[in-house]
Design a protein around this nucleic acid. Structure first.
Lengths: 263, 263
DNA sequence: CCGTCTTTGTGCACACGTTCACAAAGACAT
DNA sequence: ATGTCTTTGTGAACGTGTGCACAAAGACGG
């Protein structure tokens, strides 16, 4: 039970809200593009459009960083690029390791956007001995046995897990034990980590399921009277669990999908 | 300016909160694992632990679906699997196309978790003529020219974009024009889509930058007096933009990083 | 049939995030 | 200098999400 926390209540450390932090990279990318086109300044309106957000939100986000920006003019692109980079910690180099060099791991290793912004692939690690030494994206794959040594030697604090689900927790534990305190998890599993370790997950399957939900919603609203069960009615509920559905006063008052009553 | 909406305010269609929808796949995965182990029932406490969330949150999430579950006992695993699957629209098959068969696209095509839950890779599409016909993950790659025909023939409503950033918007436009209404975007760009089209993005670079932020935060708190600028002080702000920083009454009252004063 | 014990379902309070709308700050022209 | 005009920075209102804590529901034993 007390193995480790999975949720992260400690995020609200100081100052910048988590939602804002998550948008900073977006702003940074838009600003970088402007910088490459030698645009000297942008208004919040323009930048917001480029980043795909609301201009008020953008201004509030920036207000957490400080009062950069000039009223009546806008923001100095170069200056803002630097400020956001600094805030995100991109003025220094972050060595990362990728564990699990299958299809996905290899794709990640080859991904250009990695190195572009302060991140450097320090090592590729795989459990398959036959992969050892084989270069992927110009970097020789190393064996899992050396994981701890690699982490320590390179001062790695960010690890990327691209292993099968079954191996993820074990790899995670070893990474954490070796000193990694931030993990990006591509394996479809919930990772347990001790306090102080950040985990972010990227899960293709989950994203698709969320899309499917909305997709179904759209289809059901256009063509009503179709969104019922179309496969075999499933196992019956334990006893008399199927009863109300939107009865208390909550929920929408329109023709809802009735709870499937089997048996 | 009025090219298309990027934010999605239309999500709150009816009933189930977006945050809950995003967690349903998590519950479903945990439940499926239990189902395979032939566990008949789970309590909210157990299931919450398996899904890495708070049990109160889980119960509230389920309460939006209806009153499945038996007090004093818990939830019937099989029944709940079905209910969530149905709610997510996984009782039907969703044909998807993957556009851009590079390293990442190929990895996605090979990803097993795809087919496992209602999703079927209907086609792989790439702009490179030399790839046409070449099988990836057992599916022959087709050329971009046939995109519209493929979408229509297969009734595809979900598209995955794994192209380089430069091509993403163009591909997106074609997908949408051909009838796709949900897009999963792996390209590091903001996509503009008309109302009614859902876009979810997966961006490795952004995730890493968020981790870097927290990583820097951790390092800065442990060893104070180190987290300053360590690269060249950047371009000067436009005029006199650098002034206050946490002066109004907001922000943490401790020794903050002073705004770098260049020149 | 009644009492006890477990676990759900949810009202309520609070925290977080978003958006509006406007005063204040400065650029720029005259 | 002074006035006008643009755009920032932010107070305040609102909406969404989270977590506590407890009443109600039902299983189960006697």
């Amino acid at each position: 039970m007390a193995t480790g926390r999975t949720h992260r209540p400690a995020t609200r450390s100081r100052g910048i809200p988590e939602a804002t932090v998550a948008r900073l990279p977006l702003y940074l990318r838009a600003l970088t593009a402007l910088s490459e086109r030698s645009v000297p300044t942008v208004s919040s309106e323009e930048l917001a459009a480029a980043a795909g957000v609301n201009s008020a939100k953008l201004r509030k986000d920036f207000s957490y960083l400080g009062s950069y920006g000039t009223r009546g003019v806008g923001y100095d692109v170069e200056y803002l690029v630097y400020q956001i980079s600094r805030e995100l910690g991109l003025t220094q180099d972050w060595p990362v390791v990728i564990v699990g060099i299958g299809n996905l791991g290899a794709a990640l290793a080859n991904y250009g956007g990695f190195a572009s912004r302060g991140f450097r692939v320090a090592a590729l690690i795989d459990a398959d001995p036959s992969m050892a030494g084989k270069p992927v994206a110009g970097i020789p794959v190393q064996h899992t046995d050396d994981l701890e040594a690699i982490i320590e030697e390179n001062g790695v604090s960010i690890g990327v897990i691209a292993t099968p689900a079954g191996a993820a927790q074990q790899v995670c534990d070893r990474l954490v034990a070796a000193g990694v305190t931030s993990i990006l998890n591509f394996a479809p599993t919930v990772l347990s980590v001790p306090d102080g370790v950040d985990v972010r997950k990227v899960d293709l399957s989950i994203e698709l399921q969320i899309l499917a939900f909305h997709e179904q919603r759209k289809a059901g609203e256009e063509a009503p009277g179709e969104g019922g069960a179309d496969t075999t009615p499933p196992a019956a509920p334990p006893a008399a669990a199927v009863r109300r559905r939107g009865e208390e006063s909550e929920q929408g008052p329109d023709g809802d999908v009735p709870a499937v009553m089997p048996a």
